[in-house]
Amino acid sequence: MQIPSAKPKGDAVLAEITNFEAMAFRLKQWIKSPRPYLMVAGLLLFLAVWYMTTELFKLPRFEKLPGPVAVIREWLSEDPSYGISIYVSEYYLHIIKSMMRVFEAFGLATLLGVPLGLFMGWKKVFRDYTFPIDETLRPIPMLAWVPLAILMWPAREAAIVYLTFLAAFFATTLNTLLGVESIDEVYFRAARCLGSKPRHIFFRVVVPGALPYIFTGLQISMGVAWFSLVAGEMLAGEYGLGYLIWNSFVMVQYPIIVIAMVTLGFIGWASSAAIRFVGALLMKWKVREVSP
């Protein structure tokens, strides 16, 4: 244990430089270690097994699945035999349609769910009235809502967005509520000691204190939004990647199924990464905590 002493200002800069050097050093070590090669080997192995089972040896049952060569040839073809490749605008139309739906649903869920969750956590009376309703609805899997959603909304489009919204909304609200409940009582006491009015407690304790959980909630929310979207699009869509998967199945255009699946995986991953990035920007105090 060091005897605490005032740290001169220069130290911070120094620490950053050493951090950077440490990073460069670690990167070098990493490249020298067998790890990156094993990772690449893992992926290659996966591709190889896929290729051999479906295309090279044409094992029973596997032969029906599209192989990597067929998928990539289709994907990169300027004149694709099934009509979907990176050169075809329809491909992007599906992508944009799905992204728009998720964006609308996720945005709405965040705009409604975060304030609702904060308010539920902050005002006990409000929580007493709303939480039981939430708890009654929550055990019903979101995808069980599909038929009802189609029935409720006059347009298919609205039904799909609603379905996507619903899943995201529950995840966001619940995590925000948990976030407020996770705040140590001592911070409320300290804030009151220092003369806070209720609005100060809300904006300076409740909101920042719940932020880590809110962002966990938003990540989950984004995940379930894509999850529900696919189901909604498969059952009720016109356009969208989920629809593309189902339609290609019905039309026996199997390579497109894989193209759409991989695209879905990539966009889903990218949107989670974007949320993580924004979260790290907003919670510098959390990020810095890791590095002592």
Binding site: F227, V230, G265
Partner: peptide, 26 residues
Amino acid sequence: DLGFPILEVLRPIPPLAWVPASVIFW
């Protein structure tokens, strides 16, 4: 090191997107 990348590539694909492929295969 070998398995994690595969996991990370497959995981973001929503399970329901697997339905057609699964119906074709099984």
